[in-house]
Design a protein around this nucleic acid. Structure first.
Lengths: 196, 196
DNA sequence: GAACATCTTGAGCAATTGTTCAAGTCAAGT
DNA sequence: ACTTGACTTGAACAATTGCTCAAGATGTTC
């Protein structure tokens, strides 16, 4: 190794993620990427192989980021359900500076790439499954800790929450207002609240 | 009028809708459209002005179709809540021949065209709003007929159902299985069921 | 059947796309 | 200082994009 890469891979992937998240896979051109990443085509292709390869890493970065934000909130709030609720609020209301944070990048990917790029389509699906499994695991913890009021199997509950989150984010992307969404959040979590 | 157009406008728009719904606005090329519509570029542009113009009409056709399917189900089931539930099942489980019927075309449009085509973006949002207003109106009917068990304001209830539908369709598009979804549907409508 | 208005045809435009590659640049090892 | 080899550069590629337009076809009207 004689001449190490100048760019920081994580930073580059995160920037690419931001662009892909906003514009979609097809919507973000390689020229756009070159500008945002401050890299020339040769470097990008040397590092990631293809546009799809870069997108794949962006997807990973997105999923990792969401998972660790969730874990941080769970830690802070003391239970999964409370932490998840906080995450939902964070994602829906604190989407910084008009970013497209409302809609889930994994869902967006599934919608856009259905029948167009099997590899990325499946990869996004895999991350979604893993996310649901994480929900399940954390709900299990809640139950064992005795902080979960609800007798429904955790697998079903995880699925339910996943669907709620997707619904809220879609609705938000379709112009739903803060106050209206806030009311629905309260309604959704009624009966699943933890006890202190 | 000396030489009337050969093609049937409604048929053409419906075909275009099917392609756009599946591939998205950017994903469907004008060549794809030419093939599916059996029309040459000149004819398409003479009739619809632009790709966006055709997409706009496809969006209208989609919204009209969904609304009339809903009304048909409401008529058949005798109440809005029951009819809506039937529509949800129909959309989620009877998406014919691997079509991408799972995800809502209006939501897909909002996700894809955010910041790219304001006119279509807004137009899709408008249809979504109108859909929710239709929900509200039909819920009002339910309440007056006395078939609605629930004291929540109809506006909130309409919003809630819209979000549930979006969530379920997204989840479906992300690979959710029939049995799992069926269970969630039952859970979601618990307490909102009509009485006979 | 000639004149007419309208629709259809398809070659083709300029722009953009994802990707490649030969030439250049740079710092570490000798 | 100089070879070395990974990294950067950016011009250029073939393919595809949305769209145009002049030429041709068509059926109605007089």
């Amino acid at each position: 190794m004689v001449h190490i890469a100048k760019f920081d891979r994580d930073t580059v992937v995160r920037s690419a993620m931001a662009l892909f998240w906003q514009k979609g896979f097809g919507g973000a051109s390689t020229r756009d990427l070159q500008q945002v990443l401050s890299m020339h085509p040769g470097s990008i292709y040397a590092a990631f192989g293809s546009k799809a390869g870069l997108y794949r890493e962006a997807l990973d970065a997105y999923a990792d980021g969401m998972a660790s934000e969730l874990l941080a909130q769970v830690e802070k709030q003391g239970s999964f359900v409370a932490g998840f609720k906080a995450l939902v609020r964070q994602v829906l209301f604190e989407s910084q500076a008009g970013a497209c944070a409302e809609s889930c990048m994994l869902v967006k990917t599934r919608m856009e790439l259905d029948g167009k790029n099997d590899e990325l389509y499946e990869h996004a699906g895999l991350h979604l499954q893993r996310m649901e499994q994480l929900f399940t695991r954390l709900l299990e913890d809640d139950r064992q800790r005795g902080t979960l009021i609800e007798s429904t199997p955790v697998v079903e509950l995880a699925r339910y929450l996943q669907i709620q989150f997707m619904g809220l984010r879609s609705y938000r992307a379709c112009g739903g207002e803060d106050a209206a969404i806030e009311k629905v959040i309260e309604r959704l979590f009624a009966g699943y609240e933890t006890r202190p």
